[in-house]
Design a protein around this nucleic acid. Sequence first.
DNA 1: AGAACTATGTTTTTT
DNA 2: ACATAGTTCT
Length: 734
Amino acid sequence: MQQNLFSETPQEHPGKQTGSVITLDALNQAQYAAATHGQGPVLVIAGAGSGKTRTLVYRMAYLLEQGVAPESILLLTFTRRAAQEMLWRAGVLSSQSCQRVLGGTFHATSNMLLRQHGHHLGIGSGFTIIDRGDAEGIVNLLKSSLGLSGAGKRFPSKRVIINLLSGSINKGRPIEDLVFESHIHLSEFIDDFHEIRKHYAQFKQDHGLLDYDDLLVYWQRLLAESEQARNEICSRFQYILVDEYQDTNLIQADIVRLLADQHDNVMVVGDDAQSIYSFRGADFYNIMRFPEQFPDTRIIKLEQNYRSIQPILTLTNAIIARAEKKFTKNLFTELSGDTRPVVYTARNEAAEARFIVHKINELKNQGIELSEIAVLFRSGFHSYKLEMELTSRVVDFEKRGGLKLTESAHIKDVLSFLRILINPWDNLSWNRILLHLDKVGPKTAQKILATIKEHDDPLQAITQYTPAPGWKEGFYRLTEALGEMRKSELAPGAVFDLVMNYYEPIFEKIYYDDYPKRKRDLDQIKALIGGYGDLQSFVDDTALDPPETSSTLEEDEENKRLVLSTIHSAKGLEWDAVFVIGLAEGRFPHQRAEPGEQWEEERRLLYVAATRAKKHLFLSYPKELMTPDRKFHRTVMSPFLREINPGLYELEDPAPTPPSYATNSSTGIPPVQTRKTVKSARVDFTPGMMVKHPFFGIGKVKAVPGPRRVEVAFDRHGDKILHLDFAKLTVMDR
DNA sequence: AGAACTATGTTTTTT
DNA sequence: ACATAGTTCT
């Protein structure tokens, strides 16, 4: 039986190259053992490219072969990418029943389970589910009403604030700890944080708002406190499979524990070296705790790598070998190939971009599809220069990371209409809609809202509101449109058309510059909404589980595009050729990363990036970065790369495209004068010496670990090992 | 006073 | 792309 299953010749997923075909022969023993393990908890710890997700899919297939009903298998993933990957892998198995199980794939924030079990929590029940953007907006509002914003008032970024306020991270711990852990010098803001947190909670309660963390907590409580709910759910899902377990936070781990309350049939897979989500509360010690939570756990290690050729593995092993905390895994591969990874030092970002384009053309000539190439970077904006270059060379690309489809302004606008139709007390959505009216600003919108929210039927009440003469025209157009939309017998698609009828003129006015691009997003939404029977489920699903942008919906032809992605969004994916750009000090690790946990997570991030490559890996960095005031400053290779034995990679000749500066001067950017300052190479550094670095400031020499290196403890940036060939260190007078 | 417009600054990663 | 601050318009 199993024999048949695993040796089945897989069919390729339409439009995707599977790259490798897995048969029983290619499964290593451990993988096989994990996949076919009968009952009880299993923990699979595995390295990159070892087939963790595949093992889960095989397990699923095995269970189905054993006659387990698809409905009783629950596949949990905690990242969107992982869910996508799962679907991709299932294509390899091409088994009908597998597809059925995957239809039930969802991640932990999904409302689906709750809805199926009558514990519906969401828009229709008087709550509004808010995303990060909404939360940031609310914090801004609170900040100004508390007098914490305004000229001269310094305050940490909204990101930091939201992370600190977020429930899953700070569960049960005082905010002081968090401030400490966040490695940001926030002590001066602690009182303000307390204040904001209090008001934020109150605000959410007053307005019936729920964020992702609230939903997780809700689910956890439901399972923990209601025996009936727990029994119901546990008896339905007999087998729980969890992917990317190292990315779970404490609440999610608890949910997994509760879901398997009665049977312990859990298999989780994860890799501690790929834990890159600690900033949002993920705790890779969850993996280590798993055997305690589930007694009699079988631990299975997967050490064979099926993805990358040996030279790439050797380099990535070297990257992670420097990690302070890791659980030893010995990765090996049987794949053949001896192309060493390439490191490229570019004069500046423009040169780096040209290098990428040049190499991509080379790879294409070698027969590698554009869709089998990816460019990865630490932060969204690192690819700006490259995006410009690619656009000018007409290379088709797709950028991942950054905004979700439903987080962009125009989509939110349209969804706002649908949301108030279901929940007419949804203040946030009303506000959005009203602000679009000419001459109506925040104050006027507030006034209108205050009047209509007292009524049993706000949608009716708004028609009775008397607008000021200046904006009555637009207002009546709105109320009329709303009147049409609320006719209950309309199908979701028809409602959408009505919304577009009203919204399109406004839309064209606001986004006159990139109208067509955004219009395509709206067309996607229309396509999506057509598949729903009622508005309620559509709105719930988009609130909790936003659909992917473009690629998944589009045709295969369109799919042959280069992928630009943040490393975080590339997790779990793989390509024949991978470029990791911006590997410069100050960019990777990012400027604010401080030694310790944060630094280590950055290292793992680079590890994740480099392990995405199957055959070709290019690492590049610019020697100059542009500062916001359009000046350049010099920088050096990222410390993570500097630590690596140069024998493990190839240095690319720094002039791939002939007169590179000709093009540059035509853009009006003058070549930069790099004045050689005092050559630090001549000085003999001894421990205790005070030195000054143009970027890190003042520090004290700690040690001289090698002939060309010096370790310096900087006041503000912590310990760094500097290469005297690059670092412009000056000795200070004592 | 409030709305609309303009200039300027900022960006780690995100379920 | 978006938030904020400062200015001008109604």
